[in-house]
């Protein structure tokens, strides 16, 4: 569980606070999506949730962040890194090794996973992300999308209890993105891994995340169940946050029929809504 209370953070040399009075709770086994326009503080929030702030980025830190009971300010980054796996936005700076296999080994070796267990963990993670065939390739020979999958696999292999992902599908096409989202869902539902996901691909996010938090100018302006947050579609759009087209359809139909229509977040729901309207 991640509990954030009244968190405000200003980067050293930063002119204005990157985060202001953030309070947010992600329960064990939760799946939270974070959305918001550029510069709203999404990445900063992800760093704070993983304990990288304030450990690596100095600045003025007020409030508290606790991860499974550990206060991130008082705990070492070593203890935190055993709990939280983070996939960074810039994949090229996340990848440390020149070869896929070595990248997979890096964290496993460091965390002292036994020699007997390592091959199985590595294969399983590569398999899950669908890149078992890339194992012996050099990173330099991979496309951006393939590198992104390697980065995700190398974190999943570590079996963290909490996964924080900062736009992990930026370089991926829609089908591969959906595949990654499905994988996250599987990890979340079958292994109870808590997921915090920053994403611009709003349509996918709304299908998969159970809760949403909307950030704007360093503050949380909305948070709650995905459907509830999306029922404020117009407010979101005014902030510069897009909504799935099916949600927009719900809103337009509500206006035009003069009757409140359900807030749809996926195709199935939209299909049902339309079919009910045309008997």
């Amino acid at each position: 569980m991640i509990q954030i209370q009244d968190l405000s953070f200003t980067y050293k040399n930063g002119e204005s606070p990157a985060l202001q009075e953030i309070s947010l709770t992600v329960p064990d086994g939760g799946f939270l999506g974070i959305i918001g326009p550029a510069g709203a503080g999404k990445t900063t929030l992800a760093r704070a949730a993983a304990g990288i702030i304030p450990h690596h980025y100095p600045g003025d830190f007020y409030g508290s962040v606790t991860v499974n009971g550990l206060d991130t300010v008082d705990s070492s980054i070593i203890d935190l890194s055993r709990l939280v796996g983070m996939v960074f936005q810039d994949v090229d700076s996340q990848i440390i090794s020149p070869l896929v296999e070595d990248e997979m080994l890096y964290g496993l070796e460091n965390f002292g996973v036994s020699r007997e267990e390592i091959p199985q963990r590595m294969e399983e993670a590569l398999e899950k992300v669908g890149i078992a065939d890339l194992r012996d390739r050099s990173i330099a020979s991979l496309s951006g999308g393939q590198r992104q999958k390697v980065a995700i696999a190398s974190i999943i292999a570590l079996k963290p209890r909490i996964l924080v992902l900062d736009e992990p599908t930026g370089e991926l096409d829609p089908r591969s993105s959906r595949q990654i989202f499905s994988l996250l869902k599987e990890l979340n539902e079958e292994q109870g891994i808590t997921i915090i996901l920053i994403e611009q691909k709003i349509m996918l996010l709304c299908e998969f995340a159970r809760q949403l938090a909307v950030l704007s100018k360093g503050r949380i302006v909305r948070q709650g169940d995905t459907r509830e947050v999306l029922s404020h579609a117009e407010e979101l759009q005014a902030l510069g946050v897009n909504c799935p087209r099916v949600t927009t359809l719900s809103r337009v139909l509500s206006e035009k029929t003069g009757a409140e229509q359900p807030v749809c977040i996926n195709l199935d729901e939209a299909e049902n809504m339309v079919r009910r309207l045309i008997p």
């Binding site: 990288i52 980054i77 070593i78 810039d90 090229d92 996340q94 890096y106 964290g107 965390f111």
Partner: peptide, 18 residues
Amino acid sequence: RRTDQTAVAAEARGFHLR
């Protein structure tokens, strides 16, 4: 900027435990 981020990424995967 990238080198700095790589350091963070290494730390988050147990650099100090090695």
